[in-house]
């Protein structure tokens, strides 16, 4: 059971400003059905350039709906410059707080507002687009967006970043990348915080190397493959040669050699040793595979 404030519950059960403004001055659309929440914000300005009317339509949980409703009330009467300064924290504070795992709802509100303002300023041409490189492919979150939630909310862990913008909450394959972004921004603050990724060590005994390879496969590689219905098994290690077998969807995939092998090799080189190379176990590659959808 989520702990929602009375204010949020009020806005969920009695949402204000529901709908779409006809011929709006600005439109902002963010999120998607696949992601689990989506928000369409429309506004109209008065003759002084202040927001006279704002309406929303939201697909999502109670906090997504409550946050959207509150946002439309917050921005009424503001100039666009004032509205553009709103942060997700302002929205969450206005509600008397949100459960940690629901903070991304406040970020979605701020994103929709920005998109709507951009849309107005570009004369109705600009639609919300992702800027920068995508870090989290599951939820389509860019590096820029991750940096921003870290800065605005003083985040120091991957879990927090996931709560605020969903990044890293799907297959988990990008979590080490998020860790690096946190380190880059927060620097000293996160020193001494244990990181989940195995550290690359200097000289390893054979046993240590094999264990580290197995650990890297378990923690860094398998979760990403699982998310796509695949799997990987470590068959053997001969010197610098790492022999693996791909299962499930990855095994069927004709592109295995060009994609999965490279990904695994890159991860192993990053976390274990630079001289490693990966080979696919031929015997198991000939196993019959299931081609059901």
């Amino acid at each position: 059971m989520w702990e929602y404030t009375d204010k949020l519950k009020d806005h969920f059960f009695n949402p204000r400003n529901v709908g779409e403004i006809e011929e709006p001055d600005g439109v902002g659309e963010v999120g998607s059905l696949a992601c689990g929440d989506a928000l369409k914000l429309t506004f109209k300005l008065d003759e002084n350039g202040k927001i006279a009317e704002a309406k929303f339509k939201t697909f999502g949980c109670a906090s997504a709906i409550g946050t959207s409703s509150v946002l439309t009330e917050m921005i009424k009467g503001l100039t666009l410059d004032e509205a553009a300064k709103l942060t997700n924290k302002d929205i969450a504070d206005y509600l008397g707080g949100l459960p940690e795992q629901k903070m991304h709802c406040s970020v979605m509100g701020r994103e929709a507002l920005e998109a709507a303002i951009d849309n107005y300023r570009s004369g109705g041409k600009k639609k919300h687009e992702l800027e920068g490189t995508i870090v989290c492919t599951c939820f389509g979150v860019t590096e820029q967006e991750i940096e921003r939630v870290i800065l605005e909310n003083d985040l120091t862990t991957v879990e927090e970043v996931t709560n605020y913008c969903k990044a890293g909450g799907g297959c988990g394959g990008c979590q080490s990348e998020i860790e690096k972004i946190i380190e880059k921004i927060q620097g000293d603050k996160v020193k001494g915080v244990p990181v989940s990724a195995p550290r690359r060590a200097g000289k390893l005994t054979n046993i240590q190397k094999i264990q580290l390879i197995q650990q890297t496969i378990n923690e860094q590689i398998r979760p990403a493959l699982r998310a796509h219905g695949g799997n990987i098994e470590l068959i053997d290690v001969e010197g610098s040669k790492v022999i693996v077998a791909f299962r499930g969807m990855c095994a069927q995939c004709r592109l295995t050699e060009f994609t999965m092998k490279d990904v695994v090799e890159a991860k192993l080189r990053e976390f274990v040793s630079k001289d490693l190379f990966v080979e696919e176990d031929k015997e198991s590659a000939q196993e019959p595979h299931n081609h059901r959808e």
Binding site: F13, G36, D37, F59, G60, C61
Partner: peptide, 14 residues
């Protein structure tokens, strides 16, 4: 379709 489960549950809960 087109709506989210948690929101339905909370409305039922009322």
């Amino acid at each position: 379709e087109y709506i989210e489960g948690e929101a339905i549950l909370l409305m039922l809960d009322k």
